[in-house]
Design a protein around this nucleic acid. Sequence first.
DNA 1: GCAGGTTACATGCACACGCATCTAATGACA
DNA 2: TGTCATTAGATGCGTGTGCATGTAACCTGC
Lengths: 128, 128
Amino acid sequence: MSDIDTERSLVDEWRRLLARHAAVSGALEHELQRRHDIGVNEFEALEQLAERRGENCRAQELTDALPLTQSAASRLVARLERQGLVTRSMCEMDRRGVFVCLTDAGRERYLAARPTQRAVLAATMQAG
Amino acid sequence: MSDIDTERSLVDEWRRLLARHAAVSGALEHELQRRHDIGVNEFEALEQLAERRGENCRAQELTDALPLTQSAASRLVARLERQGLVTRSMCEMDRRGVFVCLTDAGRERYLAARPTQRAVLAATMQAG
DNA sequence: GCAGGTTACATGCACACGCATCTAATGACA
DNA sequence: TGTCATTAGATGCGTGTGCATGTAACCTGC
């Protein structure tokens, strides 16, 4: 394959990635917002927390698991806390750190939203 | 494959899409901004225009070609115009419409930025 | 123990986005 | 021609993001 072709296919693939991301995350955003009053990133955060049943989760770990900067993740946790879905508590080992914990309401919200998210993924991710 | 496995792989694939998009568009955003003072969407818009050499391009067509709403696309064109990279002119066939045209400066900026974009794509899109 | 650097998280700020709405032009129909 | 629905694009508003910075805790070397 020539360099030109390689470049062309790279650009095409990038555009497909862009379009696919826009389609899936747009649909997720709408459905999660409409039916469960949370956004895509909020859902991903709740899922991270739910997958660590019983474990305390450092804010930093949450940041690492999300496609967000530290500041955006910090505000995301603040929003979740305002909605009563998580609590922030001080980490005793390292008092700079913050533990983020799912509340019962948070777990319920996550469990309620999960089927919606799975359904939207199944409907919009066809092209594997 | 069981339903559980199907769901699992769907979720995994979604997370890969999310991570990949974040990595590529983040890198593009940084390099294009740093070296050419434009963002990813600005570059995509310039590319759309450049690919239609000689053709006038309706604002609506630009909106359709970008992963943006009509309002975001409108503001994007306004930004490009403020930077002198495009001009907006009235469409005489339909006076509600707007033609967007690349300026010489716009074409130069696009041509200068293209190698950067291609290089970043080549460096970050490895996993096909 | 204390000074200087580093790390975890929070926050001020600027900005791009989507949604809803506005204006003006068009088209359809009586 | 006059009315009403529709379409193209612009814009007010609220919100989420990144960057830069601030604050507090930690950690290392002296």
